[in-house]
Design a protein around this nucleic acid. Sequence first.
RNA 1: GCGGUCGUGGUGAAGUUGGUUAACACACUAGAUUGUGGCUCUAGCACUCGCGAGUUCGAGUCUCGUCGAUCGCC
Length: 381
Amino acid sequence: MIIGMKTDEFKYELVHKDKNSNARLGLLNVFGKLVETPVFMPVGTQATVKFLDPQDIKNIGASIILSNTYHLWLRPGSEVLKKAGGIHNFMNYDGPILTDSGGFQVFSLADNRKISEEGVSFKSHLDGSKLFMSPEDSIHIQEAIGSDIAISFDECIPYPSSYEYTKDSVDRTLRWAKRGKDAHTRKNQALFGVVQGSEYPDLRKYCAQELVKMNFDGYSIGGTSVGEDKKTHYEMLDYTLPYLPEDKPRYEMGIGAVNDILEAVERGVDMFDCVLPTRIARHGTLMTSQGRITIRKNIYKDDFSPLDPNCDCECCKNYTKAYLNHLYRANEGLGNRLMSIHNLRFLIKLMEDIRLAIKEDRFVEFKKDFLEKSNFDERGF
RNA sequence: GCGGUCGUGGUGAAGUUGGUUAACACACUAGAUUGUGGCUCUAGCACUCGCGAGUUCGAGUCUCGUCGAUCGCC
C-alpha cells in the first residue's frame, strides 16, 4: 500500500501518455494495492498459478493475478470460499485478484449449453451434472470469492459469427451487464463490463458506448484472438478503444503473445492476462530474448548454458537447459515450476520495459525494435 | 545330463486353424498451444519376427538343427 492511497476506492490514474501513440502509463489503485499499467496478469484459474506459490508470484514481479469464477464455483464452491474468508485468505495471497466471470468457460469447455435470456444452462466438465449460471449468479459467486475486480457475465461468441447473431448477442450481453451491475453490492470490489461485437465496427462501438453509459469501473475487450487473423484482431481494438473513457482501465482478455500485447498497448490497452506463458511452459516451450526455445528437444540434453542469459529469473540464474530438458522428460514438477516462472517473468519484464518506454516517449521505437530483435514468429511467441 | 517353456522395434508386449501395408502402450522425433480440464492434442518412427536350413503358391506362425534365456528333475 502506498501512503496516501485510499484503501476504500478503485481508481485509475493516467500518469503519462506516449507522445507518438495511444500507449499510456497508468497507476491503478485497487483498494490500497498498487498496480502499474500496462500490466500482465498471470492466470491462476483454480486459486493457484499452476506450480507457483504466492512467494514465486511476488518474486517474478507480478502485481495482480487472475482467477476464475466458473472453476472456483464448481470446486471448491462458494461456501468454502466464504468460510475461508475469501480467496486472498484461502490461497494466502494478499495482492490484487481479478476474477473472470465464468462466461468464457461456459462457452469454451462446458457441454450441452443452452443460452436463454435468463442465462446459460450447461453440463459440468467435472461430473456432467446439469448447472445453470445467470449474470446475477456470476456476480454473487464473485462476491463470495472476494476478488478485487469482478467481470460481467458475457457471451464470447466464436469467430466468424454473422452480423445478425452478433447483434443479438451484443444486446443480450448488454442486458446481462446491466443485470450484473444491479446485482453487485460489494463496495470493495470493482466491476468491469465486457465489450463484444466481433469484427463489426458499429457493434463494437455500440457495445462500448452502451457499457460506458452504465459507468463500470473498467472495460474489458472480449471476443478477440478467437480464430481471426491478426489484422482483424487489431481492427477489433481500433473499433473499440476510441469509445472507452480515458479515466478508466481497459483490459484485453486472454492476450499473451508479444506482438498482440505491443499492438494493444500502442492502441491504449492497460491490462492483459493469458494462459499462454504458463501453458506453453508446461509443454516445454519457452519465450526468451533469443526467441522461442523448445526445451524438450534432444539438442538441449547436454546444453549446460542458461535458458536465457539476459533473464533475471530464478530459473535462468540457477539452472541449465540440460537440467530443464531432463526435468521436462522426467515429468518433474520442478520443471513446470521453473519454466512457468521463466515465461511469466519474460512477459512481466516486457511490461516493465514497455512502461519505461512510454514514460520516455519512445514506445513506438521500442515496439519496432523489440519485434525486430525478438525472433518470434508471426504468432508472437 | 534329461524334460518343459520361451526368444518379435530402444522397452513391455499382441500376433486366429500359416495368407494383403507386424496390434497396442511407453520411449523417441517433429508440430500444435492466446478470458487454463497441469502430466494435453496431432503427426512421424520396425526391408522385419535369435540364427541356419526345410515344408508350402505363401511362415512370426509348421518341421529339423543351432545358439541363448528360464523353470523343473537327476
